[in-house]
């Protein structure tokens, strides 16, 4: 019984966590993993926005 609960929690817990992370990561896009994203002015914030949006 105990082993069933343990396996169940492990499997569903891990599954839920991976899904949550996938959706979060996908939404953040490329800059999320960058080590200088805070000071980076060329890609992640609005500095070049007018270049990005052509219309």
């Amino acid at each position: 019984m105990l082993i069933n609960i343990l396996l169940g929690v492990l499997i569903f817990g891990y599954a839920g966590w991976t899904l949550y992370r996938f959706v979060r990561k996908s939404k953040e896009g490329k800059c999320a993993g960058c080590s200088i994203k805070n000071s980076c002015k060329s890609a992640c914030d609005a500095q070049l926005e007018e270049q990005k949006a052509p219309l």
Partner: peptide
């Protein structure tokens, strides 16, 4: 190993 795993379970 991650997302497909989770997706498969759901």
């Amino acid at each position: 190993g991650t997302f497909i795993f989770g997706g498969s379970v759901v």
